[in-house]
Amino acid sequence: MKVIIDQDKCVASGQCVVAAAEVFDQRDEDGIVVLLNPDPPADQAADVRHAAVVCPALAIHIED
């Protein structure tokens, strides 16, 4: 699994961090998503997929 984020689309809702804190974080100054792990392990796949689904800006893309 490869995770790609589009920071230009991000609206800083933080849903990705709630869903998968091991993979996503937010910048302190504006809340924009920061990708901590672009290649998360298989045991985090479900959380990462959930984060992509709940992202209101559709800023998270997953390649298998």
Rank of each mutant, 00 (worst) to 15 (best):
Q7Y: 01
Q7P: 00
Q7T: 10
Q7R: 11
Q7W: 00
Q7D: 06
D8H: 04
D8G: 00
K9G: 05
K9W: 01
C10T: 05
C10F: 07
C10S: 04
C10L: 05
V11Q: 10
V11P: 00
V11W: 02
A12I: 07
S13P: 01
S13R: 07
S13I: 03
G14S: 09
G14W: 11
Q15C: 12
Q15Y: 12
C16R: 11
C16N: 14
V17N: 10
V17I: 15
V17L: 14
V18M: 15
A19W: 03
A21V: 09
A21L: 03
A21C: 08
A21F: 12
A21Y: 09
A21P: 13
A21D: 15
E22A: 15
E22Y: 02
V23H: 03
F24N: 08
F24Q: 14
Q26V: 10
Q26S: 10
R27Q: 13
R27E: 06
R27D: 06
D28Q: 14
D28Y: 07
E29A: 05
E29Y: 11
D30Y: 07
D30F: 04
D30L: 04
D30S: 08
D30I: 07
D30H: 11
G31N: 03
G31P: 02
G31V: 04
I32W: 02
I32C: 03
I32H: 01
V33R: 02
V33I: 15
V34T: 12
V34I: 15
V34P: 08
L35D: 04
L35S: 05
L35A: 10
N37F: 04
N37R: 11
P38S: 11
P38G: 09
P38H: 10
P38M: 09
P38D: 11
D39N: 15
D39A: 14
D39Y: 12
P40M: 14
P40I: 10
P40Q: 12
P40V: 13
P41R: 10
A42S: 14
D43P: 01
D43R: 03
D43W: 07
D43V: 04
Q44R: 15
A45M: 08
A45T: 08
A46Q: 01
D47C: 06
D47G: 01
D47Y: 06
V48G: 06
V48L: 02
V48T: 02
V48A: 03
V48Y: 00
V48I: 06
R49G: 01
H50S: 02
A51W: 00
A51F: 03
A51K: 06
A52V: 02
A52M: 01
A52I: 01
A52N: 02
V53Q: 08
V53H: 04
V53I: 02
V54I: 15
V54Y: 13
V54R: 13
V54K: 14
V54L: 13
V54T: 15
V54D: 13
C55Y: 06
C55R: 03
C55W: 04
P56M: 13
P56D: 09
P56V: 13
P56N: 13
A57L: 01
A57S: 13
L58E: 10
L58K: 10
L58I: 00
A59V: 03
A59H: 08
A59I: 05
A59K: 08
I60R: 07
H61K: 09
H61I: 06
